[in-house]
Amino acid sequence: MEGFVERGFEAVRDAFAYAHDGDEGAAQLCIYRHGRTIVDLWTGQDAISGKSWDAESLVVLRSVSKGLTATCVHMLVERGQLELDAPIHDYWPEFAVGGKASITVADLLSHRAGLSSFDPESEIGAWDLLDWSACTTALVSMTPLWRPGTAFYYHPFTWGYLVGELIQRVTGKSVGDFLAAEIAEPLGLSLWIGLPECEEHRVVPGFTRKHLATPAEVEARLAGMGIDVGSRLVRATLATIATREEANEMLNTREGHAAEIPAANAIGNARSLARMYAAMIGEVDGIRLLTSAAVDRARQPQTDRLSHPAPLDVMPVATRFAYGYEITRPAGLLGDGSFGQVGTGGRISFAYPESGVAVGYTCTNMVGDEGVDDPRWLPWAEALRGALV
């Protein structure tokens, strides 16, 4: 265990150490409060690559990337360059075909667009995710998998191309370029979507010992629930699941680091994540990314009255979304009003404006399960709640 905690937060350090006792991977935890660092810890070592590990080491952030991309969008909304209720075709005219004319910016951000996976006939595989043009072209030509706005279902990969293309249409910059110029450089962050080769030596690969359910296993499980596995939505979902193992491998390559996959391949560390979220909810060294009004708008629930689309509507709804951020698990860790994003295997970053707290947590051993709290979070989150009283 290395790093420091401010007086009064020693229990967070002890809980973080306890949570990683026996973990064969490495982890970082950084917490800001009212614009300054109160916790900055790292522990463990990389068991797979043998690379060194410290506070400046980098990992692929997986779906934590969505929180970074959403923040770019809300900066543009605040500047008047985007409107949440505007149809996408106002900014991206070609998008209006195939029953997509009614899809709004808000629908995209909150996973209501009906484009949760690529069309099963598109044959977009894991390595095709590196090809921005192929992915956006496939989405433009696609008919939604359900009527947009009437239901929601998590968009694991497609979300990034949809929102990223929107950003590019409005600013003339890719997501990675906008993030660098407007967020990372002003705040001095080690945070990228599209990693420069000169930073590659700092990246420590992720790994997992978990069994990843095969498409056949998922299909059998869904069929056992009475779900029509021949439906277009289920076939598209199973096609995404089929790319999962190969996508994990791709995201550990230089090609996977250099590309821009705004829903999944941002690269950074806990220090930078916490600092970014801190600058969203308050000033950090004189810089503030969003006003209080913009933060309050961004974290408003957008899926509470919706179910999953048919035939997946028999599945319980476990996760709530705001405009581009998840609110279920962040709220469970610190309190209602928290917002952020969780990444596959346990990476998480979020803010709790009511207490002025921003959190960044990264790990190399991806043990967390989809849709539920990572058990390594709970000890330090509970200790943090106690210290904030």
Rank of each mutant, 00 (worst) to 15 (best):
D54M: 07
T364F: 11
C198K: 07
D119V: 03
L191N: 05
T208P: 06
P301C: 03
W127F: 12
G188C: 09
L179Y: 00
I193G: 02
D373K: 09
G268E: 07
G80P: 14
V175R: 09
F118W: 04
S338G: 07
I261H: 14
E24M: 06
I193L: 07
T69L: 09
F321I: 13
N365C: 04
F157C: 00
G188Q: 14
Q341K: 08
D304H: 06
R329K: 11
A181F: 01
G8F: 03
L68Q: 14
T137H: 10
L222N: 01
S133E: 14
I327H: 05
G8K: 08
L139T: 02
A126V: 10
E283M: 05
T240L: 09
T214P: 08
V229D: 15
A220D: 15
W377A: 12
L306V: 02
T344H: 07
E123C: 05
W192P: 04
I48H: 02
G206C: 12
L238R: 06
G335D: 11
G224W: 09
R33E: 15
I48Q: 10
K100W: 15
V97W: 12
A331E: 13
R13Y: 00
D177R: 15
V357A: 02
T364C: 10
H257N: 09
M225G: 05
A270Y: 01
F152C: 06
G332R: 11
T240Q: 05
S57I: 05
V97K: 15
R13K: 08
A236K: 14
Q45K: 13
P87Y: 06
G224I: 04
H74R: 11
G172H: 07
I167E: 12
S141E: 15
L238W: 03
F350C: 07
W42I: 08
G346Y: 04
A113W: 10
A101Y: 06
I38D: 04
V357I: 15
L251N: 10
D21L: 06
V175G: 10
A17S: 14
R36Y: 03
E260W: 11
